[in-house]
Amino acid sequence: MIIKTGPTSLVKKSFPIVGMHCASCARLIEKSLTRVPGVLNASVNYGSESAVVEMEGNVSDTKLESAVKNAGYRAILNKSNLSKEEEKAKELKNLKTKVIVSSILSLIVFVGSFPEWFGINLNPIFLLVLATPVQFWAGWDFYLATWSGLRNRTASMDTLIVMGTSAAFFYSILSMFGVVEGMYFDTAAVIITLILLGRFLEAKAKSHTSDAIKKLLGLQAKTARIVKDGREIDIPLADVKVGDLIRVRPGEKVPVDGVITRGSSFIDESMVTGESLPVDKIVGASVIGSTINKSGSFIFKATKIGSETMLSQIIEMVKEAQSTKAPIARMADLVSSYFVPIVLMLSILTFVGWYVLGPITIGFPVNAFINLVAVLIIACPCAMGLATPTAIMVGTGKGAEKGILVKDAASLETVHKINTIVFDKTGTLTKGIPMVTDVSDPKILTIVASLEQGSEHPLGGAILGYAMEKKVKFQKVTNFRAITGFGIEGIIGSKKYFFGKPDKKGESIKKLEDEGKTVMILKQGVKTLGFIAVADTLKEGVKGVVKHLENKKIEVWMVTGDNQRTAKAIAKLSGIKNVLAEVLPEDKAQKIKELKNVAFKVTKCVAFVGDGINDAPALAAADVGIAMGTGTDVAMESAGITLLNKDFKSILMAINLSKSTMKIIKQNLFWAFGYNVILIPAAAFGLLNPMLASFAMAASSISVVLNSLRLNKIKI
C-alpha cells in the first residue's frame, strides 16, 4: 500500500515481512532499511509482521527487498494479500515438516546414544549422518537468527541454542577422531527438535489473527439492487455510486450507507451499533451498510460507498489496532540477553583457568577444551523451549474445559495484569434481547398478546413469548393495522383497541422510562387500560462479578452506544460507577486508548469485554480483548479470549487461569535455567561427567512438563 503525503515527494509504503521470530528481529530490519539511500524512516512491527517505510522520492522495491534480505528476512512487495497468506501458510508447513523429520531423527539418535538403557548400539558415523540434517537443516534458522543478532550486537535464545548445540555437535565429531571422549549428538538434536516444536505451536496460534478481518469483509453484501428509470437491476457492490437509489427487501442486507427516500422498516443494527432492539426507520432516516433489514421494503439513496462506509471504517480500525499491539516481551529472550554473554565469558575463564592452573599438557590442551565445551553445553537449557508452550497448552486446555477459549498466548499472559476492565452494555452485561419486565394489570395481557400476533414489531415478539409463558388464551383479532412509528390497532369482539406509544405519561410510566425501559400502553377508545414495559435485562451474576473485580482493585467501566438514561439504569443495577454513554461505534476503540493513557504516571492495563461487531476495534485495541461467546464471530476473532460459558463468573475464572499459568511459566523458566546454572560451576571445575549432564537435561525437561501438568489440578 502506498500513501502519498503532501505535495513533496515523501512516500509512505507498508509491506509484510516474513521470518521474524522476536522483537529484536524487528529492530534489525529497521536498521537495515534505514541504511537504504532515500529511506527517511522505517518502523517494523513484530506483532503484525509488517514494515512501514517513509521515503524521499521513490526507492525501488528491489532495494527495499534486498535490504530486508540482507538482514536475514523476506519482504513481500507488490503482491496481493493472498500471497502474504500463502507465504505464511508455506512457512508454517515448512516448520511442520522440520518438526516431524527432526523428531524422528532425534528419537533414533537418542535411543542409539544410550545403549546401556535401550540396548541398541549404533555406529557413531550413523549418529552423525542422522544428527547433521537436524543441526544444519532443521536448525538453520537458529544460525541465521544468531548471525542477525550478532550484527545487532544482541544475544537471544537463538544464540544460546546455536552455541550449546554447535559445541555439542562439533565436540562429538572430535570425539569420533579420538581427540576427546563422549558423544553429545543426542543433546544437540533433541534441543533443536524441542525448541522447533515450541515455535511451531506458537506460529500456529499466531496464524489465526487475520481471521477477524476476513470475517468482517464477509459481512458485506455482494450486490446491490439499484433503481434506475423505473427498473431494478442487481449490480456488484463495487459499481455502486454515491447518489444511486437502492431497493432493499425484507431479510436482505443493506449494501452501503445511505438515507431512506421511500418506505419504512425495522433494521437490525445490533451487529454494527450494539443497539439491542431493531430500529424503526422511516423516510429521512440513515441506514448503515451490512445491517439486516427485518420487515419492510424500502428505497434509499447511497451516501457513503467503498472505504467510507461504517463497516470499512471498522475494518480499518481493527487492522490498525492489531498492528499497533505491543510485541510480547519474551522472558526467555530477556534472560538470554544477559545469560549468553556471561556464559561465554565463563567458558573462556574456564579455558584460561585450566590452561594456566590445570595439569600440564603437551600439544592440544584437552582438559581446558573439554571443560570449555562442557560449560557451553550445560548452559543450553533443553527445557527452555518447553517452559512456555507446555504451560500455555495445559492452561488453554484447562480454560477450554471451563468454557474459556484462549486464542493467543499473549492474552493469557496479560489478563492477570489488568487493572481496568471495560464492559460493553448490550449483550455483555445485558442479555441483549428484550423481555417483559412490568405489566400494570395481568388482564390486559390477553388483549395485547392477541393484537401482537399480527405484528412484526420486534418488541411484539417479547410480549408474545411472555404471554405464552403465562399460558394466555389468544383471541381473534379483526381489522388489524400497524401504524408505523406509533403502534398497532385491531378489533377484538366488538371493541377497538390500540397498543403502542403512550400519548400522555404519568408518574409510573416516567419512572419506568428512567429505568431504561420501553413502555407501551393499551387503549380502548380514549380510555387507557394499562401498560406493559419491555427492557433488555441484566445477566445473572453481573453484580457479584463487578463487586469482586472492585475488591481486587480493578477499575470497572461501562461503555455503550445507548442513551444516558438506559446506560445509567443498567450501571445502577450492575453496580458500575464509571459510565460512558452515547459512544459512537467508531469511538469505542478511541475511548479504550484514552483509558490506557489516562493514568497519572501509572501504567494502565485495560481489558475490554464485548460481543458486537462494533466492539471489534475496541477488543483489538485493548491490552486484552474478551468476547462473549454468545456474540458475533467477528468479535470473537478480534478478541484474545472468548467466554463460551454463559456464566458471567467465567471472567473471574479467566483472570485466575492467567495468574496460575503465569506462575507455572515462571517456575518452569526457573527450572529450565536453574539446573543448568547450578551445573555451570561444576562444568567449569571439571566435575561434570556426561551422565550427570544427561541427567540434568532429562530432569529439567521432566520437571517442566510435570509442573505444567499441575495446572490441571489447580482450582480456578
Binding site: 550486537r153 540477553s337 554473554p341 573462556i348 575463564l349 579455558f351 584460561v352 590452561y355 594456566v356
Partner: peptide, 30 residues
C-alpha cells in the same frame, strides 16, 4: 609463568573484555 600461559591469560581476558564491550557497551548509535 611460562610465555604460553601468559599469552592465553592475556588473550582470554582480552576476549572476555571484547565480549563485555560487544554485548553491553553499545547502542549509542540508536
Amino acid at each position: 609463568m611460562s610465555p604460553d600461559k601468559l599469552l592465553v591469560t592475556v588473550g582470554g581476558l582480552g576476549l572476555m573484555g571484547f565480549i563485555w564491550w560487544f554485548f553491553f557497551e553499545k547502542k549509542h548509535d540508536n
